[in-house]
Computed example of a mutant assay.
Amino acid sequence: MKKDQLLTRRRALIAGAAVLGAAGGAGTARVLTAEPAAKPVRSARAVSGPPARRALKPSAYRLQPMAGFGPPHSTHPRTAVRHEPILSVSGRGRRMVLTFDDGPDPRYTPAILRTLRKYDVRAMFFVCGEMAVDNKDLLSEMADDGHIVGNHTWTHPLLTKLSRSAIHSEIERTCEVIDDAYGEPPVWFRAPYGAWNRATFQIGAELGMEPLAWTVDTLDWETPGTSTIIDRVESGAAPGVIVLSHDAGGDRSQSVRALRRYLPRLLDSGYHVTVPRRRFV
């Protein structure tokens, strides 16, 4: 399907974040939760596994975003510069967000997309440009399914060790690939390894993106075992939680098998796995 035929649909699905207002005055960041959030640990990298549990009855409610839809934006909105990343999301009910970093990887990402589609659930994918440029079809599939695609730099470097110009290049090049394949520029950014500094916040804001971290780290990049990943997600589940997993960067078969098992359990427990949306100013 041609890019211009997808734009209208994608703009209705894309872009978004929790009930965010631009940070006021000096641009001080605020964590969108009443509870103190865990500090980001480190980033990691995610395939197919055994048959999924029984499918639950599709529910349109599960697809509802955490906040209202905003008007489509063809250019970067004005974004305040934060001093720390967003660590949690707000919203009524038992809502939580699943995020996958470092892809897309044709070995693992399609299996994750199939599982999310089976349960009518949307998620966030923070992609690396060097992976996305050769797998644009997967970004298009994410757009068609209503997932959010965020920027995770081009080569997954430790940004705090780079010059400002190098940081800008890493982020901007990835924005361009996402815009081309996804149909809209990204409005979310995640620093590799959870390593943020003033330059990353400033450059991300200049390019129209909010910084998003996580509250539950599955540490799946360590390949600790499918059961361990499941336990980390289920024990950490709570309203407003952002879960970090990976769909690339190594053998992610455990991550895929874990998703197939914990996702229906979360839904059966009353959690609404959804994506956040931004309010632009």
Rank of each mutant, 00 (worst) to 15 (best):
K3Q: 10
Q5Y: 05
T8P: 07
L13N: 09
L13C: 02
I14K: 00
V19A: 13
A22I: 01
V31F: 00
T33M: 08
K39H: 09
P40C: 06
R42N: 11
S43W: 06
R45D: 09
A46K: 00
A55M: 10
A55E: 12
A55G: 08
Y61A: 15
R62E: 12
L63G: 15
P65H: 10
F69D: 09
H73P: 01
S74W: 14
T75P: 00
R78A: 13
A80K: 04
H83S: 15
I86H: 02
S90R: 14
M96D: 00
L98S: 04
T99V: 07
F100P: 05
P106R: 15
P106T: 13
L113A: 13
A123W: 06
F126N: 02
C128G: 08
E130M: 13
A143G: 15
H147G: 01
G150Q: 04
G150K: 02
N151C: 07
H152Q: 11
H156P: 01
H156L: 05
H156M: 02
L159W: 07
L162S: 02
R164P: 00
S165W: 01
I167L: 10
S169G: 03
R173A: 08
I178W: 00
D180M: 04
Y182S: 03
P186W: 01
W188M: 12
R190H: 03
Y193I: 02
G194H: 02
A195Y: 07
N197E: 04
Q202F: 00
E206L: 05
G208S: 11
G208D: 11
L212E: 09
W214A: 08
T226S: 12
I229G: 06
I230C: 09
V233D: 00
A237H: 00
V241G: 00
D247Y: 01
Q254C: 13
R260C: 13
R265K: 11
S269H: 07
S269E: 14
Y271V: 10
Y271A: 03
V273L: 12
